[in-house]
């Protein structure tokens, strides 16, 4: 089974490392790919596409050097492959308008305000990844122990008559 990717887009190395540390518990089945800005993130997305690896989730900061996080997510959402990717904005600096644009145009799935608590981020990411595998994965069993096991098991019970 090929692993899925979580893409973390954050320019400050300290913050980026903190996010990656919080998401460590997903690592047996999800590879965490760091990116420091939108350009870097797009390169990572292309690389994943070339390797046939699917990106399940993008956790992006809004205030990035160059293209802003919200614009980046809107661009991703407009591509065929990007539509299915779950998108979380992790930011303290997105204004009212940016936030509205993110929800309406980027298909934003969740907004986490900085500063965040590790437990909250884990539960948000767990929910998003569970949604993703329920929508996109045929075989749910491998994810039961790492994501929301109860929801996955209910789906397993439902899938066959």
């Amino acid at each position: 089974m090929s692993s899925l990717v979580i893409l973390v887009v954050e320019d400050e190395p300290g913050v980026r490392d903190a996010v990656i540390r919080d998401l460590e518990s997903f690592e047996p089945l999800f590879r965490i790919e760091p990116a420091e800005d939108a350009t870097d993130a797009k390169a990572a997305l292309e690389e994943c596409a070339a390797d046939g690896v699917r990106v399940a989730l993008i956790v992006a900061d809004h205030l990035l050097p160059g293209q802003h996080g919200t614009e980046f997510l809107i661009e991703v959402n407009q591509s065929d492959e990007g539509k299915h990717i779950k998108k979380v904005l992790l930011t303290g600096q997105a204004g009212h308008d940016d936030t509205i644009r993110a929800i309406n145009q980027a298909g934003l799935d969740y907004y986490v305000a900085k500063p965040w608590s590790g437990a909250d981020l884990i539960s948000v990411v767990s929910k998003q990844l569970t949604d993703y595998v329920l929508e996109e994965s045929g075989d749910l069993l491998p994810y039961v122990s790492i994501l929301d096991g109860s929801r996955l098991l209910e789906a397993i019970a439902e899938r066959g008559i």
């Binding site: 096991g149 109860s150 098991l153 209910e154 019970a157 066959g160």
Partner: peptide, 16 residues
Amino acid sequence: MSNMATTATMIAVVLP
């Protein structure tokens, strides 16, 4: 019911 569906349903209840 199927053993598998029953198991999945009941474990979903117990897991939390």
